[in-house]
């Protein structure tokens, strides 16, 4: 299970389309199952399920017809599996696609992808438009696919989603991979942002390991803490006394701005060339 992270416009969908052989890369190389996705697209696609980022369905076809069309081209759905997915995603297969909301269109694409087992699932922002209950159904389904030995490539711009699901992560920015590794290796990316009203002296907090970017905002202190350094910070805060506290994982955009802000102009120049 590999997460593919990047802000909007970073080139996530383009990369996935290259892996599908829909676009020809104009530099670098890509292999899927050890083969060239452009030349061997048909063979590769037999063992591959794809959920596009912006699901566009045939307005006159019902959800059920769409699912059947897409799975039959790969060899046909397992009926029991199809029924279970329809039930769990609470999707009415008799409605015409023009009547589906964005979330329901997404569900059609997901059911079509999971109703026939594949070796590789390429999912482009698969949870956009899903409510939290459906997101958990989706997570369960992805885990089931992994237990069957499948590989999942999941693109997203939501860090927490990738954190929950993926073992490895690649982060791209302006068309370049800027980080690749296991989540443990990337721990430094997952800092928690604190905003507290406390009497603890700022110098004492700033001296703790894993505390970054400490600064005062009015009568509040704001700082980021590495995930594995949370415990000592919390102890220090508890000892000093806290009158209000908010803690939030940093958004991906913030991370990018902080970590790659300097490189941005360079990268953009490179991609413009």
């Amino acid at each position: 299970m590999h997460g593919f992270l990047g802000p909007n416009g970073a080139g996530k969908s383009t990369t996935l389309r290259v892996l599908l052989g829909l676009l020809r890369s104009n530099g670098g190389s890509a292999t899927v199952f050890g083969r060239d996705p452009w030349a061997d697209a048909v063979d590769i696609h037999r063992d591959l399920a794809y959920v596009p980022g912006d699901v566009s369905l045939w307005p006159n076809l019902t959800g059920g017809e769409t699912i059947d069309l897409l799975t039959r081209m790969r060899g046909g759905a397992e009926p029991a599996r199809r029924d279970r997915l329809l039930r769990e995603f609470e999707l009415d297969p008799k409605r015409k696609a023009r009547g589906y909301s964005k979330g329901n269109r997404q569900k059609v694409a997901l059911v079509a992808a999971f109703a026939r087992p594949a070796k590789l699932y390429i999912l482009d922002e698969p949870t956009s438009g899903l409510d939290p209950v459906m997101e958990s159904v989706f997570r369960a389904e992805v885990q089931r696919a992994q237990e069957d030995g499948a590989t999942v490539l999941l693109s997203s711009h939501i860090l927490s989603e990738v954190e929950q699901l993926c073992q490895r992560v690649t982060i791209i920015r302006a068309g370049r991979a800027v980080e690749t590794g296991t989540l443990a290796e990337m721990r430094h990316l997952t800092r928690t942002s604190f905003r507290v009203a406390t009497v603890a002296p700022s110098a004492q907090l700033a001296a703790l390991p894993g505390v970054h970017d400490l600064h005062a905002e009015g009568d509040h202190l704001a700082f980021d803490v590495d995930t594995d350094a949370l415990q000592p910070v919390l102890s220090a805060l508890a000892a000093a006394g806290v009158s209000s506290l908010t803690a939030a994982p940093p958004s991906l955009e913030e991370l990018f701005l902080r970590h790659y802000g300097d490189e941005l102009p360079v990268l953009e120049e490179a991609s413009a060339r």
């Binding site: 389309r17 599908l20 829909l22 697209a41 048909v42 063979d43 696609h45 037999r46 591959l48 794809y50 596009p52 699901v55 566009s56 897409l70 081209m73 790969r74 694409a109 390429i122």
Partner: peptide, 9 residues
């Protein structure tokens, strides 16, 4: 895209 994402040349 969805059809060509299947095994269709």
């Amino acid at each position: 895209e969805q059809v060509l994402g299947g095994p269709v040349s």
